[in-house]
Amino acid sequence: MEFFKANIQLGEVFVQLIAFVIVFWALKLLAWKPLLKGLAARREHIQGQLDAIEQSKKEIGGLKSEYAAHLQKIEEEARLKIQEAVREGRQISREIQDKARAESQAVFEKAKTNLDLETAKARITLRREIADLAVSVSERILKEKMSDSSKQQEKILEIIDDLEKSL
Protein backbone atom coordinates (compact mmCIF):
# COMPACT_ATOMS: atom_id res chain seq x y z
CA MET A 1 0.00 0.00 0.00
CA GLU A 2 2.91 2.32 0.71
CA PHE A 3 3.99 1.93 -2.92
CA PHE A 4 0.52 2.86 -4.13
CA LYS A 5 0.29 5.82 -1.80
CA ALA A 6 3.76 7.01 -2.77
CA ASN A 7 3.14 6.79 -6.49
CA ILE A 8 -0.49 7.75 -6.85
CA GLN A 9 -1.89 11.15 -6.02
CA LEU A 10 -5.64 10.90 -6.41
CA GLY A 11 -5.96 14.59 -7.25
CA GLU A 12 -3.44 14.21 -10.05
CA VAL A 13 -5.22 11.10 -11.38
CA PHE A 14 -8.55 12.91 -11.32
CA VAL A 15 -7.22 16.01 -13.09
CA GLN A 16 -5.38 13.90 -15.67
CA LEU A 17 -8.57 11.90 -16.26
CA ILE A 18 -10.65 15.04 -16.76
CA ALA A 19 -7.95 16.55 -18.99
CA PHE A 20 -7.79 13.44 -21.15
CA VAL A 21 -11.57 13.25 -21.49
CA ILE A 22 -11.70 16.94 -22.51
CA VAL A 23 -8.89 16.46 -25.02
CA PHE A 24 -10.62 13.38 -26.41
CA TRP A 25 -13.97 15.13 -26.86
CA ALA A 26 -12.36 18.25 -28.31
CA LEU A 27 -10.31 16.22 -30.77
CA LYS A 28 -13.24 13.98 -31.62
CA LEU A 29 -15.43 16.94 -32.51
CA LEU A 30 -12.88 19.28 -34.05
CA ALA A 31 -10.28 17.00 -35.57
CA TRP A 32 -11.21 13.34 -35.88
CA LYS A 33 -14.68 13.82 -37.34
CA PRO A 34 -13.62 16.32 -40.05
CA LEU A 35 -10.46 14.35 -40.84
CA LEU A 36 -12.24 10.99 -41.11
CA LYS A 37 -15.09 12.59 -43.02
CA GLY A 38 -12.61 14.25 -45.36
CA LEU A 39 -10.74 11.01 -45.88
CA ALA A 40 -13.97 9.12 -46.52
CA ALA A 41 -15.09 11.83 -48.98
CA ARG A 42 -11.75 11.70 -50.79
CA ARG A 43 -11.86 7.88 -50.83
CA GLU A 44 -15.37 8.08 -52.25
CA HIS A 45 -14.27 10.68 -54.80
CA ILE A 46 -11.28 8.59 -55.90
CA GLN A 47 -13.45 5.47 -56.01
CA GLY A 48 -15.99 7.39 -58.10
CA GLN A 49 -13.24 8.51 -60.47
CA LEU A 50 -11.89 4.98 -60.69
CA ASP A 51 -15.38 3.64 -61.36
CA ALA A 52 -15.86 6.29 -64.04
CA ILE A 53 -12.53 5.31 -65.61
CA GLU A 54 -13.55 1.67 -65.47
CA GLN A 55 -16.90 2.55 -67.06
CA SER A 56 -15.13 4.59 -69.75
CA LYS A 57 -12.78 1.68 -70.37
CA LYS A 58 -15.76 -0.61 -70.80
CA GLU A 59 -17.43 1.88 -73.12
CA ILE A 60 -14.22 2.27 -75.12
CA GLY A 61 -13.93 -1.53 -75.26
CA GLY A 62 -17.52 -1.72 -76.52
CA LEU A 63 -16.88 1.02 -79.09
CA LYS A 64 -13.68 -0.71 -80.15
CA SER A 65 -15.42 -4.03 -80.73
CA GLU A 66 -18.28 -2.18 -82.44
CA TYR A 67 -15.73 -0.35 -84.62
CA ALA A 68 -13.95 -3.63 -85.38
CA ALA A 69 -17.26 -5.23 -86.35
CA HIS A 70 -18.11 -2.20 -88.46
CA LEU A 71 -14.70 -2.35 -90.12
CA GLN A 72 -15.17 -6.05 -90.72
CA LYS A 73 -18.55 -5.35 -92.27
CA ILE A 74 -17.07 -2.61 -94.47
CA GLU A 75 -14.28 -4.92 -95.57
CA GLU A 76 -16.82 -7.64 -96.32
CA GLU A 77 -18.95 -5.21 -98.29
CA ALA A 78 -15.86 -3.93 -100.15
CA ARG A 79 -14.85 -7.48 -100.97
CA LEU A 80 -18.34 -8.27 -102.21
CA LYS A 81 -18.42 -5.08 -104.29
CA ILE A 82 -15.02 -5.85 -105.79
CA GLN A 83 -16.17 -9.37 -106.59
CA GLU A 84 -19.36 -7.94 -108.11
CA ALA A 85 -17.33 -5.44 -110.13
CA VAL A 86 -15.00 -8.17 -111.33
CA ARG A 87 -17.98 -10.28 -112.27
CA GLU A 88 -19.59 -7.35 -114.08
CA GLY A 89 -16.27 -6.57 -115.78
CA ARG A 90 -15.96 -10.11 -116.95
CA GLN A 91 -19.56 -10.03 -118.16
CA ILE A 92 -18.98 -6.77 -120.02
CA SER A 93 -15.75 -8.10 -121.51
CA ARG A 94 -17.53 -11.26 -122.60
CA GLU A 95 -20.33 -9.17 -124.11
CA ILE A 96 -17.81 -6.92 -125.87
CA GLN A 97 -15.98 -9.96 -127.20
CA ASP A 98 -19.24 -11.53 -128.38
CA LYS A 99 -20.32 -8.28 -129.95
CA ALA A 100 -16.94 -7.83 -131.64
CA ARG A 101 -17.03 -11.39 -132.82
CA ALA A 102 -20.56 -10.92 -134.19
CA GLU A 103 -19.59 -7.65 -135.84
CA SER A 104 -16.48 -9.14 -137.39
CA GLN A 105 -18.57 -12.09 -138.56
CA ALA A 106 -21.04 -9.69 -140.09
CA VAL A 107 -18.23 -7.71 -141.75
CA PHE A 108 -16.76 -10.95 -142.99
CA GLU A 109 -20.12 -12.12 -144.27
CA LYS A 110 -20.68 -8.80 -145.96
CA ALA A 111 -17.23 -8.83 -147.47
CA LYS A 112 -17.79 -12.38 -148.63
CA THR A 113 -21.11 -11.42 -150.18
CA ASN A 114 -19.48 -8.41 -151.85
CA LEU A 115 -16.69 -10.64 -153.04
CA ASP A 116 -19.18 -13.16 -154.45
CA LEU A 117 -21.09 -10.35 -156.10
CA GLU A 118 -17.88 -8.91 -157.55
CA THR A 119 -16.84 -12.38 -158.66
CA ALA A 120 -20.24 -12.98 -160.27
CA LYS A 121 -20.00 -9.51 -161.82
CA ALA A 122 -16.51 -10.26 -163.09
CA ARG A 123 -17.60 -13.59 -164.45
CA ILE A 124 -20.48 -11.96 -166.33
CA THR A 125 -18.13 -9.28 -167.63
CA LEU A 126 -15.55 -11.93 -168.54
CA ARG A 127 -18.17 -14.04 -170.23
CA ARG A 128 -19.31 -11.05 -172.22
CA GLU A 129 -15.76 -10.14 -173.08
CA ILE A 130 -15.05 -13.77 -174.06
CA ALA A 131 -18.19 -13.76 -176.15
CA ASP A 132 -17.11 -10.48 -177.72
CA LEU A 133 -13.64 -11.87 -178.17
CA ALA A 134 -14.97 -15.05 -179.73
CA VAL A 135 -17.08 -12.99 -182.07
CA SER A 136 -14.15 -10.77 -182.90
CA VAL A 137 -11.87 -13.81 -183.42
CA SER A 138 -14.47 -15.43 -185.57
CA GLU A 139 -14.79 -12.23 -187.55
CA ARG A 140 -11.04 -11.97 -188.10
CA ILE A 141 -10.80 -15.71 -188.94
CA LEU A 142 -13.51 -15.37 -191.45
CA LYS A 143 -11.79 -12.27 -192.98
CA GLU A 144 -8.49 -14.14 -193.26
CA LYS A 145 -10.05 -17.29 -194.80
CA MET A 146 -8.59 -16.68 -198.20
CA SER A 147 -4.94 -16.84 -197.06
CA ASP A 148 -2.96 -20.06 -196.47
CA SER A 149 -3.14 -22.27 -193.55
CA SER A 150 0.25 -21.24 -192.12
CA LYS A 151 -0.77 -17.70 -192.39
CA GLN A 152 -4.04 -18.49 -190.64
CA GLN A 153 -2.17 -20.12 -187.82
CA GLU A 154 0.09 -17.08 -187.41
CA LYS A 155 -2.90 -14.84 -187.45
CA ILE A 156 -4.67 -16.83 -184.72
CA LEU A 157 -1.54 -16.68 -182.53
CA GLU A 158 -1.34 -12.94 -183.08
CA ILE A 159 -4.95 -12.58 -182.09
CA ILE A 160 -4.32 -14.63 -178.93
CA ASP A 161 -1.33 -12.38 -178.05
CA ASP A 162 -3.48 -9.30 -178.54
CA LEU A 163 -6.08 -10.83 -176.32
CA GLU A 164 -3.52 -11.56 -173.56
CA LYS A 165 -2.22 -7.98 -173.74
CA SER A 166 -5.73 -6.57 -173.52
CA LEU A 167 -6.48 -8.70 -170.47
Binding site: Q9, V13, F14, Q16, L17, A19, V21, F24
Partner: peptide
Protein backbone atom coordinates in the same frame (compact mmCIF):
# COMPACT_ATOMS: atom_id res chain seq x y z
CA UNK B 1 6.67 8.19 -16.10
CA UNK B 2 4.16 8.97 -13.36
CA UNK B 3 1.69 6.27 -12.43
CA UNK B 4 -0.98 8.89 -11.84
CA UNK B 5 -0.99 9.84 -15.52
CA UNK B 6 -1.03 6.29 -16.86
CA UNK B 7 -3.69 5.27 -14.34
CA UNK B 8 -5.90 8.15 -15.45
CA UNK B 9 -5.65 7.10 -19.08
CA UNK B 10 -6.16 3.42 -18.17
CA UNK B 11 -9.25 4.28 -16.08
CA UNK B 12 -10.65 6.30 -19.00
Amino acid sequence: SSWGTTLAVALA
